[in-house]
Write a protein that binds this DNA or RNA. Sequence first.
RNA 1: CGGGCCGUGGCGCAGCCUGGCUAGCGCGCUUGCUUGGGGUGCAAGAGGUCCCGGGUUCAAAUCCCGGCGGCCCGACCA
Length: 480
Amino acid sequence: MAESRITPRSQDFAAWYQDVVLEGDMAEPAEIVKGCMVIKANGYAVWEALQRAFDDRFKAAGHQNLYFPLLIPQSFLKKEAEHVEGFSPELAVVTIAGGRELEEPYVIRPTSETIIGHFFARWIQSWRDLPVLINQWANVVRWELRTRMFLRTTEFLWQEGHTAHATHEEALEEVLRILDIYADVAENVMAMPVIKGSKTSGEKFAGALRSYSIEAMMQNGLALQAGTSHDLGQNFGKAFDVQFQTREGTLDYVWQTSWGVSTRLIGGLIMTHSDDKGLVLPPRVAPFPGVIVPIYRKDDERGPVLETARKIAADLKIKLDDREGQTPGAKFFHWERRGVPVVMELGPRDLASGNIVIKRRDSSAKETVAQTSVREKLESTLGAIQKDLYAAAKRRLEDNCVLANSIQEVEDILREVTAEKGGGKFVMAHLKDDPATDARLKEFKATVRNIPMVDNYDGPGACVVTGEQVPQRVVIAKAY
RNA sequence: CGGGCCGUGGCGCAGCCUGGCUAGCGCGCUUGCUUGGGGUGCAAGAGGUCCCGGGUUCAAAUCCCGGCGGCCCGACCA
């Protein structure tokens, strides 16, 4: 009767995304606070799953969590020239507090390099104090002009790791270690394949020596920067006077890194796996793996069905939808929209046969299995869903990476992409890291996403714009 | 921040251009019966600051001005 309120992807990808977020009960616009959203329980549970995955890995790599203030003295931002220039347009500033104008305004943190730099200076005196490996889970505010739920909101949740090292080599190792963790979680937990690489100088973090990213491809072929890891060099060390005494007794500035992933990942997750029926969640990030929908028609069926369903649900640690007054059909649609990986049906027929029906969210495949083997079946099905979702996304990524050997080819491909028909591509071409080449791509609303760490192609070649030799092909794409 | 579209019970909309009965419709919600393996049917109900603030008018959801918020495009950015 009531049709799905989800716009098909083929009709309008942006509307589809919005519909999936809303119908999946992931989040909704805050409405009274511009550019902000309410992350609803179904969405927050996904965030918690991601937090656990990252946090476990950070801790295993020796990092500790702590917490810095939300408010940062405005002067701190100004200490690193590039940093302030990069962030000033998007700062929210507190000028009045306690009913009085502040002598020095505070900015609401857009990121915490500066305030952490200040404390690093207090905490670090000797090479023996290094490395410092810390992380904080926090909210940040960036006054964005255009917002989209999860992908870009004024306030968002993230983790920001900050480390200080005695040598550049060690810092760089850290940057890449974190990039590996990001890729690991993206691929093995979120089932979202990514390309690890370094950003071009034009795309790097404000204040960094060099930035690295993982880039994912959404179903419409647009790129999404899903995580970044920065080699800050000694820039912040110098700006905040973070010096330490070396083994040799000399003074040196620390080498710092910073890295972060945000709730944006959830947007990426949605645009990687979901379909026209709604949200699709990989089992490893789903709030719960499955739900049982009991089916009965007569009162004398209801009791036994519910009893068995309850037992199985408790046994498997999955949910039982025992709401009265909702038909099974309505319940199926409900859980489908919310992306629950498997839905099980249990009715009188199953009770008689000792079976249970198990249905996959991703493929819609339905299977009847003996109740005695449902545990194994659930486990193997969840494993298969996780694996198949990754494989499908991986195939899409590979199929939509195309080679271009001249600027003409690059532009021809990008022109099609800008047609907004969801046929986005990652264009792999030799291109020099240069403002001039950036400008050339900008005409097509494309950017260099990154320079892959692993070159899957043909090594060095001539830049399609300047003709100069460059070491490898880069990823060029339109991006969120 | 510029351009476009939009804001009416919980949700989706009609009404607005051309001001005027009691602001309608579908879904949802409540109650009862019914139904139940992919959105069951029938009946009776509840539910409204028409985004906010001004203005014009005898009279404003409707016209005018100013805000706020959302979506899309653009410029800027995780």
